[in-house]
Design a protein around this nucleic acid. Structure first.
Ligand SMILES: [Zn+2]
Ligand SMILES: [Zn+2]
Ligand SMILES: [Zn+2]
Ligand SMILES: [Zn+2]
Lengths: 171, 171
DNA sequence: ATTCCTAGTGTTATAACATATCATATATTC
DNA sequence: GAATATATGATATGTTATAACACTAGGAAT
């Protein structure tokens, strides 16, 4: 996933179905290393491995799917093993949780603080991560009008990505 | 819950902590009766009771909490009893599911088609249901720009409602 | 009226997701 | 190196949701 400097609205775009995902994973891990070093966090092998598994998935992945893969290298991993790593990664914004799927996805830009806005393809499970100011503002405006003090936003949009739409209509 | 004709943006506003909730429940059940009759749906006693339990709760309520209350009158109710009723109610838009809470809440206007946008108070668990065009447009605009075909939106905002904010700051 | 079908519910079991608790190991700090 | 804090191991349990099959009541078709 490549950052697009200057465009503060798209944290992570949809990737072509054929892109080099190995590179995405490598980049994300490198970014996480830097991020953790900068904040003095202990990015242990276990946490690193869980992050790698999350990124390796083609889309949001469930905790128990992570667990299953994790057991390839850590035979006695148990649910808490995974959930503790996920908690760490979420706390430090290296991953996000997709509430509507009970699943986790790598964050496209851990260094920037942002709420989660996601477009999720029902077909290929690709995810685009946004930090769309217009959406945020629209929410804030309505909340303000009602005297509501916003603490956390969840915006998850399910649908079909451009590639899948094309493939479907070409059939 | 009173409908505000002319304002198409707020499906169901926050209610005062002291409002007559019995009346909300009664109104909602009456609306559901009409809605089901109009569409030729069988609004059975079980489904009616589950809807009543959802509405009776002060905020979003979990399936197993519904189950527990349901057992007061239906001793051998089991999870499928509840989930089947919830499925029916959701399919016909009489309730919504709050993804971020794994909980269910009565719909403030079942006759109008709308996506779910919710403000949820962390303190008193009150929920305001919106159909804010500005939010919807902001999402659509960004989705269109990415060639994404939106099928379903989840917008759930956690925070503090006006009354709770006031109570908190007053001490 | 008998047969057939369907929608709704009952019943049991299990899948899927998440946390509590206590023990052990491994780093940091002094 | 002892004390402390952090991380992980291990076991059990809690919470949310669905699968699978049986039974019933009521309407349509013959
Ligand atoms: Zn990729
Ligand atoms: Zn797709
Ligand atoms: Zn509604
Ligand atoms: Zn409140």
């Amino acid at each position: 996933m490549k950052k697009v400097k200057g465009d503060t609205q798209i944290i992570a775009p949809f990737q072509s179905h054929k892109h080099d995902h190995e590179q995405c994973v490598a980049d994300a891990l490198a970014a996480a290393e830097i991020c953790c070093k900068k904040e003095g966090l202990s990015f242990t092998p276990l946490r690193r491995l869980v992050l790698e598994l999350v990124w390796s998935s083609h889309g949001p992945i469930g905790a128990y799917d992570i667990l299953e893969k994790l057991r390839d290298s850590r035979r006695n991993a148990a649910p808490p093993t995974v959930y503790r790593a996920l908690d760490f990664l979420m706390e430090h914004r290296l991953i996000h949780r997709i509430e509507s799927l009970n699943a986790y996805v790598g964050c496209g830009d851990p260094e920037r603080h942002h709420g989660g806005q996601f477009l999720i393809c029902r077909d290929c499970h690709a995810v685009a991560e946004l930090d769309d100011k217009a959406i945020g503002r629209a929410v804030s405006r309505r909340a303000d009008a009602l005297g509501f003090d916003v603490q956390q936003q969840t915006v998850e949009v399910i649908g079909l990505c451009a590639e899948c739409t094309a493939e479907t209509s070409n059939g």
